[in-house]
Each structure stands twice: as C-alpha cells, then as structure tokens.
Amino acid sequence: MTVQPSSRPRVGRSSGVGRLLITVYAILALGATGRSVVQIIERFDTAPLAFTLSAIAALVYIVATIALIAPGPVWNRVAWIAIGFEAVGVIVVGALSIAMPELFPEATVWSVFGMGYLFIPLVLPWLGLWWLASVRASERAAATSGAA
C-alpha cells in the first residue's frame, strides 16, 4: 500500500495572505529605499536622524520581504525578528515624532505612525506577526495530524 501525501494544501509564509503581505512589504521596501536614498543624497545634513531612520525602515522592509519569501526555519526566525523590530520601530518613532517633533524636522517612513504612507507602516507589522503565528499554528496542527 502506498502512502499518499495529504490533499490538504500546505500553508506557508508565502501562500494565501502571505502573498499579499509580501507584495505590500516589497512596495514599502521600494518606496522607503527610494525615499531614504534621495533624502540622504540631497539633504542629509538637514535631518540626519530622520533620514537614517528612513534608511533603517527601508532595510527592515527589504529583510522582511526576503524572509517572508525564503523557505526554512532560519528565514522564519528572520521574518519574526524583522517584523517584530518593525512593530517596535513604528511605535517608538511614531510616538517620538509626536512628543518631540524637534527631533524630526523632516518626516521618516515611521513618523506619526506612518501617516505619510496612509498608516500602512502601523498596521502592517501586526498583520505580519498575526500571519506568522497563523502559519506556525497551521504547521503544528499539520504535524500533529500527520503523526496520528
């Protein structure tokens, strides 16, 4: 008797909702990278903290995009770290940009919780963390049912 693979589709980080998240992360990665490069080249001396934070946000979006696409447990951990860092970053920078606007003479990607990007930077990491947790739960359930 041959054992047939499960007919249930396998849920991975880059399937279903994950594809939408990857698309949004890729768009933000491109937008934030372009913004920070232009800001740093043209007027870095006017707002070095803000423009450095924009570059960091761009790097986080690039890493998160790659980590959501790439298979394996190492990339899964990288996705958790990058998206977790993003969640903390947007909260901290968002709060500081409101409480201490003098630190941010020009906006960053995460200023005022991503207001310049329609608050997508505020919502996206929470959706990303939810998705990673959902995939983890699905993989555990599949492993448990497969062991039975």
Rank of each mutant, 00 (worst) to 15 (best):
Val17Met: 12
Thr108Arg: 00
Arg77Lys: 10
Ala79Ser: 12
Pro73Thr: 08
Leu28Met: 15
Ala64Gln: 03
Pro5Glu: 14
Leu53Ile: 15
Tyr25Asp: 05
Gly84Pro: 02
Leu21Lys: 02
Ile40Gly: 00
Ala67Gly: 11
Gly72Tyr: 08
Ile27Leu: 15
Gly116Gln: 08
Leu49Glu: 06
Ile22Trp: 04
Ile66Asp: 02
Val88Tyr: 13
Glu86Thr: 07
Ala55Asn: 06
Ala47Trp: 15
Ile56Leu: 15
Thr33His: 01
Gly18Met: 07
Arg77Ala: 14
Pro73Glu: 13
Ser111Thr: 13
Met100Trp: 08
Val24Asp: 04
Tyr117Asp: 07
Pro105Ala: 11
Pro5Lys: 05
Val60Thr: 13
Arg43Lys: 13
Ser54Ile: 08
Ser6Cys: 06
Ala55Asp: 05
Asp45Gln: 08
Pro9Gly: 04
Arg13Gln: 11
Ala64Asp: 04
Gln39Ile: 05
Ile41His: 00
Arg19Leu: 15
Gln39Met: 06
Leu49Trp: 12
Gly16Pro: 02
Arg43Gln: 07
Ala67Arg: 07
Gly116His: 05
Ile62Trp: 03
Leu28Ser: 03
Ala70Pro: 08
Pro9Lys: 08
Phe104Cys: 04
Gly89Ala: 15
Gly94Met: 13
Gly12Phe: 08
Leu28Lys: 01
Ile81Gln: 03
Phe104Asp: 02
Leu103Ile: 12
Leu20Gly: 14
Ser14Asn: 14
Gly16Cys: 10
Arg43Pro: 00
Ser7His: 14
Val88Phe: 15
Val78Asp: 01
Ala99Glu: 12
Ser54Tyr: 04
Thr23Pro: 00
Phe51Asp: 00
Gly114Val: 13
Ala29His: 02
Thr108Ala: 12
Ser111Ile: 14
Ala29Pro: 01
Leu28Trp: 10
Leu53Arg: 03
Leu21Arg: 02
Val88Cys: 07
Phe44Gln: 00
Gln39Ala: 11
Ala57His: 10
Ala70Lys: 13
Arg8His: 09
Glu106Asp: 06
Phe85Leu: 14
Tyr117Leu: 10
Ser7Trp: 14
Glu86Gln: 10
Ser6Tyr: 11
Leu68Ser: 05
Leu30Ala: 14
Val38Lys: 07
Gly72Ile: 05
Val24Ser: 03
Val74Ser: 05
Val78Tyr: 05
Pro5Gln: 12
Val17Lys: 00
Thr23Met: 14
Ile41Ala: 07
Val38Phe: 12
Gly84Ser: 03
Arg43Asn: 04
Leu28His: 04
Ser15Pro: 01
Val38Pro: 00
Thr33Glu: 04
Ala79Tyr: 13
Leu28Asn: 06
Trp80Gln: 11
Ala58Asn: 03
Gly31Phe: 06
Ala32Met: 06
